[in-house]
Computed example of a mutant assay.
Amino acid sequence: MLGPSPLMAGDELPVAEARVRIHAALQPITDQETLALRQSLGRVLAADVISPIAVPAHDNSAMDGYALHGADLLADAPTVLRALPGVTVFAGTPLAQPVGRGQCVRIMTGAVMPEGLDTVVPIELCQVAADAAGDTVTLKPGVLKPGENRRKRGEDLALGQPALRAGHVLRPADLGLLASLGVAELQVFRRLKVALFSTGNELRTLGQPLEEGCIYDSNRFSLMGALERLGLEVLDLGLVADDPVALNATLDAALAQADVVLTSGGVSMGDADYTRDLLAARGEVGFWKVAMRPGRPFAFGPLHAAAGRTAWLFALPGNPVAALKAGSRWAHV
């Protein structure tokens, strides 16, 4: 139940109570669809995304330097190692040959750690000297601990672990994360569909001549922008004259497609009586007088179509500032 209509009774409805009533009446969208990753920005995940790989996928170097056996490090004397001659391990090209005790190998950031090696010394901490047999790498005591500068397989994200949870709104960084996991498609909730129109004989749309006493419709455009920024699907139904036949036809079109019907104008006490009667005949619409300025007159409730569909009406005041403020207030319930 939406409760009595404070507008008709002359009482003001506190904003907090209005939010509670709206929140209690609405149900979240449950319909789902599968989208390509590149189309999913701003959408809401309908299921957990489980990582199909470990991140990182293998032990790898966190530094440019030399990979070595941590057990070769001396605590109280310099550590001298022989580098594999002419070998550098790059990312994407694992080392095929073994690296023995007392040896090390030049390695770049992101490269797979050679088998048996567990530590990387940054190049700036090394003293490298060349001789006939190749390079020797000397480390001062205490500059490095065994296991340092190695990223372990799965330390960021383990295989089979949820990468993102259902209900998460996808941001640009999330798309990058999912692409790094090889995820090409996502299960998301479909977008809320909002049918939007403005009412009033004094309104003209862009491109029409402006007769004396008329104004251009601005509410539809500001509300459309606010809705699209929220990631909603907006169905622009244009302008509707102050005429019951026209309003009925527009409501029929809205109810056939939308989850929400958003209008501006026609809900104040001074507006045409047929508007309230027509809306009330289609559902349980409450005409409220909310304790906020601007945005005081407001109508909310379910509208029922002949085919059994129901959409929720949010009818905002016609004043442009009031319409945008009220629309922003109630869109985030």
Rank of each mutant, 00 (worst) to 15 (best):
L279H: 13
L37P: 07
T310Q: 13
V169D: 02
A25W: 00
F90I: 01
Q208P: 13
C214M: 11
A246V: 04
Q32I: 14
C214T: 04
D64I: 00
L196M: 05
V143N: 04
R191E: 12
A130K: 07
L170S: 08
V183W: 06
D118R: 02
H58T: 03
S61T: 06
A184Y: 01
A83M: 02
I22K: 09
D243Q: 02
G116S: 03
A195S: 13
L125M: 07
A253Y: 05
T275H: 09
T34E: 15
H304L: 14
G42E: 00
L247H: 03
S51W: 10
P14N: 04
P302Q: 11
G110H: 02
V55I: 14
V105M: 08
E233S: 09
N201Q: 05
P94T: 00
L206G: 08
P146R: 01
V99D: 05
G134E: 09
K325Y: 14
A46V: 06
F90Q: 06
G207M: 05
S328L: 15
E17D: 14
V44Q: 13
V240S: 04
N248S: 15
Y66K: 11
H23D: 15
W312I: 02
S264E: 02
P317H: 09
L324H: 15
E124G: 06
F300K: 11
V121E: 04
K325L: 07
G147R: 09
S218K: 04
A258L: 03
D273N: 03
V80L: 15
V188H: 05
D11G: 13
P56S: 03
K140P: 01
K152Q: 15
M269A: 12
W330T: 01
D11I: 08
G225A: 12
G286C: 11
L45Q: 10
A75S: 06
A299C: 08
G70K: 00
L170A: 09
M269Q: 07
K325E: 04
F300M: 05
G42R: 14
A272P: 07
Q208L: 13
A96D: 15
D64N: 02
F300Y: 09
V188T: 08
A62T: 04
K140R: 12
R21S: 10
R309N: 14
A305G: 15
G265K: 01
V55K: 15
L95F: 08
G286I: 05
Q161T: 15
